[in-house]
Write a protein that binds this DNA or RNA. Structure first.
Length: 526
RNA sequence: GCGUCCUUAGCUCAGUCGGAUAGAGCAAUGCCCUUCUAAGGCAUCGGUCAGAGGUUCGAAUCCUCUAGGGCGUACCA
């Protein structure tokens, strides 16, 4: 809608005109402060310029009115235009808000180590990434969702050790020497029991079997993770294992050319000139690769697969890593600008205003599955999607457990359910509803219709700016308008019943589409 | 120290390609069901947009400095 207006103005004035939403809808549907910036150039007062521009529109079929107010130019779309657009949307519901953007994008997110279940911080990245994925796909981008599995290196060794120690200590009753760092938690006890019943006690004692057990456990844990993600409607297309990439090592190193060098038996990457503080070790003097090594071969592999753009969603604690990986990408001969890294900040939970600790499991981290169990996937997704991801976030679990209007996800879903109930109750048949024309609406109804038709712009803006919170924000505002309208206007038995129902169906379509892009199903009844 | 993200109502957060009177929810105080779901609506209360300068017709938004906080600054992942 905005695009069409924007395109029209571009043709007319031969430049892009900034369109914004007026503070008060009574001013019109769109407005532009263009006269202010022109006033200096033209040496005329903004008021006069705005007046002249507004008058130049005279009769245009897209607009009902174009007026100048205090230097702003306000555009009011014509009823015919809005009706036509709404009718199109209702009969092409799948296409509503979609686009035909071109481009392939590899989106990597979550990528949590397969050494334990997901915690609440991972959930934020998962929701953010999955929402971006849904938005991008709806807009037409060819997107691949990928999970990078760190199945090599120290943490896998540590997993094997921790698993055996846990088993020996809790199942075999042995006194064990715990190392400084080790994994613990209910999932590990469960795995130890499974080792015992499947492989026998010896497997827990035989240190030469640590690696084997670690790899076995890694797969089990990955299954856990995949299930956790499934519970919040997050799915991946591809999983790439770090270990599988090392065959390519020599070739990748050669490809980096002067980007890497050997010093005192260690291999380093020359990242210091490229935004990093100093060069980084890639291979230790004992030949073991560092964490960065895995990322280098992984990113090489990503670029060799030939996507047009790459988005990584990383935890904020990885931000120092961006420069290094980008340095590697340029040494590999690719454009580091094609990789975009979005950081998702920390999450902490409150319960009735107090810091929340889950007591039921060992360890201090809060597991995602526990939170999902408490508040449900919908509330979790809506809440995480509502907050911009570059700010540390605290939320109160008690507030999200409530099933009333104080919980935004219920508020929005209730709006959808109210509409569906009305449609079901009405004697009107769907054909009559669709045939009616949305003209002569009251100011409130017109405002509601326009708000509902804004969804496509919101989707595009949310995706392109990577600010997914714009979508839930919009849905809350739309739901609020709907609830107010519902309260003020009795629909069934109204002289314009068919017309109003058609309007509400547009609202429902917007809510349903918006929710589905958030990975949440709209409810018809509550 | 350096890098980076941040600081908006009592609390949790939106609003930031500079635009009309800074917004929601929670909390607090009231009001509205003989009306399609009160899982709702309305009203009141609550702000020096961390602070100080600067840029300009116009700043929560851009620039500089200061204060406070998170994260990073590993041959850990």
């Amino acid at each position: 809608m905005k695009q069409r207006v924007s395109a029209l103005l571009r043709d007319k004035f031969n430049c892009d005109i900034i369109l914004e939403k007026p503070k008060d809808r009574s001013f019109g549907h769109f407005s532009t402060p263009i006269a202010f910036s022109l006033s200096k150039e033209l040496r005329k007062s903004p008021m006069i310029i705005a007046e002249e521009i507004a008058n130049s529109f005279e009769e245009h079929e897209m607009f009902g009115a174009v007026e100048s107010v205090k230097g702003y130019i306000n555009f009011r779309l014509s009823e015919a235009f809005l009706d036509e657009y709404a009718s199109w949307a209702l009969s092409n519901d799948k296409q509503f808000g979609s686009d035909d953007k071109k481009g392939t994008i590899l989106l990597e997110f979550v990528s949590a180590n397969p050494t334990g279940p997901l915690h609440i911080g991972h959930a934020r990245g998962a929701v953010y990434g999955d929402t971006l994925l849904r938005l991008g796909r709806h807009l037409g981008y060819d997107m691949t969702a990928e999970y990078y599995v760190n199945d090599a290196g120290n943490q896998i060794d540590l997993l094997g050790t921790s698993l055996q120690l846990e088993g020996r200590s809790s199942l075999l009753g042995e006194e064990v020497q715990w190392p400084e760092k080790y994994y613990r938690g209910e999932y590990l006890s469960d795995l130890a029991k499974e080792v015992q019943s499947q492989f026998g006690d010896d497997a827990l004692r035989d240190e030469s079997r640590q690696k084997e057990l670690a790899l076995w456990a890694k797969d089990k844990i990955l299954e856990l993770i995949v299930n956790d993600l499934k519970a919040i409607n997050v799915h991946f297309d591809t999983f790439v294992g770090e270990a599988s990439l090392y065959d390519e090592w020599d070739r990748v190193m050669a490809k980096m050319g002067d980007g890497v060098y050997v010093d005192e038996g260690k291999t380093l990457i020359r990242s210091s000139g490229l935004g990093d503080d100093h060069d980084r070790v890639v291979v230790r003097d004992d030949g073991r690769p560092t964490y960065l090594a895995g990322d280098i071969i992984y990113h090489n592999q990503k670029f060799e697969r030939g996507f047009q753009n790459y988005i990584n969603i990383w935890g904020a604690d990885h931000h120092g890593y961006i420069a290094r990986v980008k340095a590697a990408i340029s040494f590999l001969g690719y454009d580091p600008e094609k990789l975009e890294v979005q950081l998702s900040q920390m999450v902490s939970l409150l319960k009735d205003g107090e810091p929340y600790k889950m007591s039921k499991r060992a360890g201090t981290v809060i597991q995602m599955s526990d939170v999902v169990e408490e508040i449900g996937a919908d509330a979790l997704r809506f809440m995480f999607a509502s907050k911009k991801c570059d700010t540390a976030l605290e939320f109160d679990i008690e507030e999200l457990k409530r099933q009333d209007s104080s919980n935004p996800v219920y508020y929005v879903q209730y709006a959808h359910a109210r509409i569906q109930t009305l449609v079901a109750k009405s004697e009107m048949n769907l054909d009559d509803i669709m045939k009616s024309s949305l003209v002569g609406l009251s100011a409130d109804a017109d405002g509601l219709l326009f708000e509902a038709l804004l969804l496509p712009e919101i989707i595009e803006d949310a995706f392109e700016s990577r600010q997914v919170q714009k979508l839930p924000d919009y849905l809350k505002a739309l739901a609020a308008k709907l609830h107010k309208f519902y309260y003020d206007t009795r629909i069934i038995g109204h002289e314009d019943e068919a017309k109003l129902l058609k309007l509400l169906l547009v609202v429902a379509l917007s809510i349903k589409t918006g929710l589905s892009l958030l990975g949440i199903e709209a409810k018809d009844r509550m």
